[in-house]
Design a protein around this nucleic acid. Structure first.
Lengths: 71, 71
DNA sequence: ATGGGGCACAACAGATTTGTTGTCTTTTAA
DNA sequence: TTAAAAGACAACAAATCTGTTGTGCCCCAT
């Protein structure tokens, strides 16, 4: 799996979890002190996020960090 | 869990897996085109690594990416 | 038709990671 | 004891992330 594929899969997984939880990008962002554009960039796979950033995302989604990587 | 704790735990877990596999920092590094100092910095928890970097680490350790996060 | 909510993309500055080189200490083996 | 291997830390440049602002599109309700 190359870098682009990995980031797109990760972004898609996060988006799916967010929608399952009934949250908007803005709501997820606000819950962890970020803004909508940052979440959008992540879900679209345009960045290679850091572990701690994903840790915060997991908190906002109320899932375990490792659950973001079932990809 | 704060940032510092997370990164230290992640680094420790990677170190444990590496040693279980009988690899040195240099061997892990070489197997994925990095160098020893980069692995050392990761295992000591002094950096907040990117997802793709950890993906490469997982390849070098022959484990799944999600396995690095059982912390 | 107008306005608001949700989402997408670009660009900027500042902060941070990553690759790299250099050096040092500790451990292991001869 | 000596040398080599393994690991630790610092600092630099280049690349990249992250926070932020600005903007635009689409859908839906008023």
């Amino acid at each position: 799996m190359n870098k682009e594929q990995l980031l797109k899969k990760l972004g898609s997984r996060i988006r799916i979890i967010r929608i399952e939880k009934g949250m908007t990008q803005g709501e997820l962002a606000n819950s962890i002190g970020k803004d909508q554009q940052s979440i959008q960039r992540l879900e679209s796979g345009r960045v290679n996020p850091s572990v701690f950033y994903l840790h915060e995302i997991a908190l906002g989604l109320d899932v375990e960090l490792k659950d973001l990587f079932h990809i």
